[in-house]
Design a binder for these strands. Structure first.
Lengths: 153, 153
DNA sequence: ATGAGGCTTCCCACGGTGGGAAGGTCAAGC
DNA sequence: GCTTGACCTTCCCACCGTGGGAAGCCTCAT
C-alpha cells in the first residue's frame, strides 16, 4: 500500500486538513505509539511527512485507524484485522468472506468464554467452601495441591 | 527458598526416587522448558543437580509443579501463583487471604467474560444481519468503519 | 565404541502495548 | 531576536507466558 510521500510545510499541511500524529491519536483513540507501530507492521500505509519529518494524516487515515480501533475492541487479532481491511479496501468482494471471519471469531470467543466460565465456577465454588477465617484448612489450596477428594472440574 | 544442592551420581538419584526434568515434565504436564523458566524466575526452588549438571526433582517438587499447573489452568497469573504458593508453604496462615485471592480472581474473570460476551453478541448480531452472499454491502464492515447508523455496542 | 535421545545454556520469536532517552521542531511570549 | 514548553522523531527495552532451535555435553543400550 505505497502512497506518494507528501512533503508540504507544516502550515500547508494544516491548510489541507492534514493532522499530526498527536491529533490523529486524539481523534481515533489510538495512541501515537500504536499508530507508528501499525505503520511499521504494514497495517497502516506509510504516512506522508512534512519537510521536518512529521507524519501527516488525512481523514481517510483517521477512518482507517478508527476501523482498526473498533476491530481491536471487538477482539480481532492484528492478522484478522489485516484481512478485514483488505476486504474493506476491496469493496467489490463478496461479503461472505467477512461474515466467515466474523463468525469464526465469534466461535473462538465462545470457546474462551466457556473456558473462563468454567474457571470462574470452580473458583467461586472453592471460595464458597472456604471458611476464610483463621483456620488453616482451605479447600482452595487443597484443590490446587490435588489433595482434595472431590475435584471441581 | 534455597535448598542444598545435591550432587549424586545419576544412578544414586534414581535409587533415591529423584527424577530428571523430562520425567518431571511428563509427570506434571509442565514442559521442561517451563520448569526451567519457573526456576529462573524463582517460582520453583533451585533444583539439585547430578555431577553432570542434570536437574533432579523429588516428589515434593512434582507436587509444587502440579500446583502451579492447576493454578495456571484456573487462569491465575504467575504473580498470583507466587502468593498462593507462599500461602501454601506457610500452612499456619489464615485461609482468608487465599479466599481473598480466589474471589478477586473470580471477579476479574467475570469482567473478562462480560467483555467477551459483549463482543460475541455484537459479532453474531452483525453476522446475522450480513447476507454473506455476493452483494458487497456488509453490516460488519459498516460497523467497523463507523458508517452504520445503528451501533450495536 | 557408537548412536539415539536426553540434558545443558543461550538467544530469538510471538502479540500488543507502554516507557523512556536523546534529539529535532514548532509556536507563543517577551 | 531568543527562550520555553509542547510536540515530534528514532531507537531500545519491558511486560507475560510459551515455544523453537542451535550447539554442545551426558547416559544408556547395543
Amino acid at each position: 500500500m505505497p502512497r506518494p510521500t507528501l512533503r508540504p510545510e507544516a502550515a500547508d499541511a494544516r491548510a489541507q486538513g492534514l493532522h499530526t500524529i498527536g491529533e490523529a491519536a486524539e481523534a481515533t483513540a489510538v495512541s501515537a505509539k500504536m499508530i507508528r507501530h501499525y505503520e511499521s507492521i504494514g497495517l497502516m500505509p506509510t504516512a506522508g511527512r512534512t519537510f521536518a519529518g512529521y507524519r501527516l494524516y488525512a481523514e481517510s487515515d483517521l477512518h482507517r485507524l478508527r476501523f482498526i480501533k473498533r476491530a481491536r475492541t471487538l477482539g480481532f487479532s492484528i492478522k484478522e484485522i489485516e484481512q478485514l481491511l483488505s476486504l474493506w479496501d476491496d469493496r467489490q468482494r463478496a461479503s461472505s468472506e467477512v461474515k466467515q471471519l466474523a463468525l469464526q471469531h465469534a466461535r473462538a470467543l465462545e470457546q474462551k468464554i466457556r473456558d473462563m466460565e468454567s474457571m470462574r465456577a470452580t473458583l467461586t465454588d472453592l471460595a464458597r467452601r472456604c471458611h476464610g477465617d483463621n483456620h488453616p484448612e482451605c479447600p482452595i489450596l487443597e484443590d490446587l495441591a490435588g489433595t482434595s477428594r472431590k475435584a471441581t472440574n
